[in-house]
């Protein structure tokens, strides 16, 4: 029964996540609140591992979250679910490729979609920012900020903008190294 729910949820993600791997993030974030499959901090690990391993980001994220929720069958079910809508839609479109590609309605809809997806991803990341850079359960404002983590975050962000060509895996390894050296955050 739970497997069926997992399949349907990931089928929906495959159907509505437009614009590449990270576009699945808002949906995965929503599942954190709805089901006990994984937590917001698991989600940060999912992104880290998915960016550090080969294969399409969206597929990696589906496999990992499905596996965390329901083990090996979960990984397979989530991946099948996220892939199936693509397969069906493309098989339909393949016959009418040119008409679809040049259709002004389709083009106009996707201009709006692409802009809104940026906002959706930004909102989805707030949860991860909260657990990574802030202390929860503090009442005094200054104590809410995890200063050590924020300094590391600023350093890593500047580093990332400066060396954008560096592979994410290197970057995530630096994060792990800093975490170990500084003894967590």
């Amino acid at each position: 029964m739970e497997a069926w729910v997992l399949f349907i949820e990931f089928f929906k993600i495959g159907l509505f996540a437009v614009g590449g791997g990270l576009a699945t993030l808002p949906f995965l974030n929503q599942l954190v609140e709805k089901y006990p499959w994984y937590t917001a901090s698991d989600l940060a690990n999912v992104i880290a591992v998915s960016e550090s391993t080969p294969g399409p980001l969206g597929v990696n994220m589906a496999t990992y979250t499905g596996f965390t929720g329901l083990g090996i069958p979960g990984g397979v079910i989530a991946t099948t679910g996220i892939v199936l809508p693509s397969l069906i839609i493309i098989l339909i479109i393949a016959r009418i490729l040119d008409q679809f590609n040049k259709n002004p309605y389709v083009k106009a809809a996707f201009v709006g979609l692409r802009a809104s997806v940026v906002g959706l991803i930004a909102a989805a990341v707030l949860g991860i920012v909260q657990i990574s850079l802030f202390h929860t359960g503090q009442t005094e404002i200054l104590n809410m900020f995890n200063w050590k983590a924020i300094v590391v975050f600023l350093f890593l962000t500047i580093f990332r903008f400066r060396f954008e060509k560096v592979h994410p895996i290197v970057f995530i390894a630096i994060g792990a190294g800093l975490g170990i050296v500084l003894g967590g955050f």
Binding site: L22, N45, A48, E51, V129, S132, L156, R160, A176, L178
Partner: peptide, 17 residues
């Protein structure tokens, strides 16, 4: 500890994305 660091790196990579 490593994953606490990785989470911060993930925040930074996504900000850039």
């Amino acid at each position: 500890s490593a994953f606490a660091g990785i989470r911060i790196a993930v925040c930074a990579t996504i900000l850039v994305s």
